[in-house]
Write a protein that binds this DNA or RNA. Structure first.
Lengths: 195, 195
DNA sequence: CAGTTTGCCTAATAGCTTTAGGCAGATGCA
DNA sequence: TGCATCTGCCTAAAGCTATTAGGCAAACTG
């Protein structure tokens, strides 16, 4: 009967920690109740259901990631900014694999629109101001960067690059070099053969 | 009591279909039993457990994907091969989202080593023969391509690119152009400043 | 300090996973 | 063809998670 002081925020934070420890898909209402030494049903006063809990963790992760990105980008431009942003994602995923997995949770359009996800897109766009791209190439480049960052980080985290030399640090550095080179020499759209 | 003729193979295939219909994480021993109109316990004669079932689906997906890739690469080189391989991944993910998700399942090292996953790495490497790269740049490039393909496909599938112009077809085409350009002008390793 | 709110509880239902043990249809051999 | 064995699917049962309904007592409110 002792009141533990549960709130949606505390549950979300504890859920994020749990995710980092055991994996996002192992985050369960039951496990969280155990962690607070409280009965399972008690959580349902603070969180609508399991899906709601996971969504909150995802939103937390997206916001944390956006905060880090904003800080990293401040005062940087060009390749410096590119590497800083890329490393934010990679470092966050390594420090907080569960939260990073949570950030990939598919959100319904409304929630997604209100999430920090939009800040990410805006920051990537801001980063590209250091390169000479105009629409629609800028959007293509935003999507390319998102793909590379997310793809690399999730493959590396998933062990996709293990068991083989050279090490991933080296690869990561060379990929950032390559992206910088590419953005500085972005190929023009091929002329439409129908024209 | 009528024997339905369950086998691990039939269960795996049905599981893959189920994954494509309702999502890989919704693939459950129970759901599969329902699909065969059979009691749940019956499946345990053919499949060790839920994890085993999912692993089999993952291996099926990896093998199908490798088969498609091999076929697509046959007789092609350079950018033609690059686009063909890239489209194999993208098309497969769109046709079989559940299977594609299954292919990302983290396998234990032994299983991974025996899986078709190694064929994928080899094919990407083969593709790079059309470009002028030597080790270790080739490995870096293999990893870059893997990152872009996987990252783009999973973001697109997850709806990460929705709600915004221009359409993803155009972006995809431009990204392939960009990768081709990049591979043909792969930046040399920067000289070590300590040297 | 009485009244109300609210936080955590018990109880109950329902689904998924996994194991143990049983019966009958399929298979093999004389 | 008949008998023995094997194998496939079954019933039963225990344990975990999710979720809802309703209760009691601690904590605010005036």
């Amino acid at each position: 009967m002792a009141r533990v002081g549960l709130t949606a925020e505390r549950l979300t934070l504890a859920g994020a920690e749990l995710a980092d420890e055991v994996g996002f898909d192992q985050v369960t209402v039951s496990a969280l109740a155990r962690r607070f030494d409280v009965k399972v049903a008690s959580l349902y006063s603070h969180v609508r259901n399991s899906q709601d809990l996971k969504t909150r963790i995802a939103l937390l992760a997206l916001a944390e990631l956006a905060d880090r990105a904003a800080e990293a980008l401040a005062g940087r431009a060009g390749k410096d900014a590119l590497a800083a942003l890329a490393n934010v994602y990679r470092d966050y995923a390594r420090e907080h694999p569960g939260r990073y997995a949570a950030a990939q949770l598919r959100l319904d359009p409304q929630t997604a629109a209100a999430s920090a996800g939009v800040r990410h897109a805006r920051m990537t766009r801001a980063l590209l101001r250091g390169y000479d791209l105009t629409e629609p190439d800028q959007t293509h480049a935003v999507r390319l960067l998102g793909s590379v960052f997310h793809g690399y980080v999730s493959l590396e985290l998933g062990g996709g690059f293990s068991h083989s030399a050279p090490d991933t640090e080296e690869t990561w550095a060379r990929i950032l070099d390559a992206l910088d080179t590419l953005l500085r020499n972005w190929p023009a759209a091929p002329t439409d053969p129908r024209g």
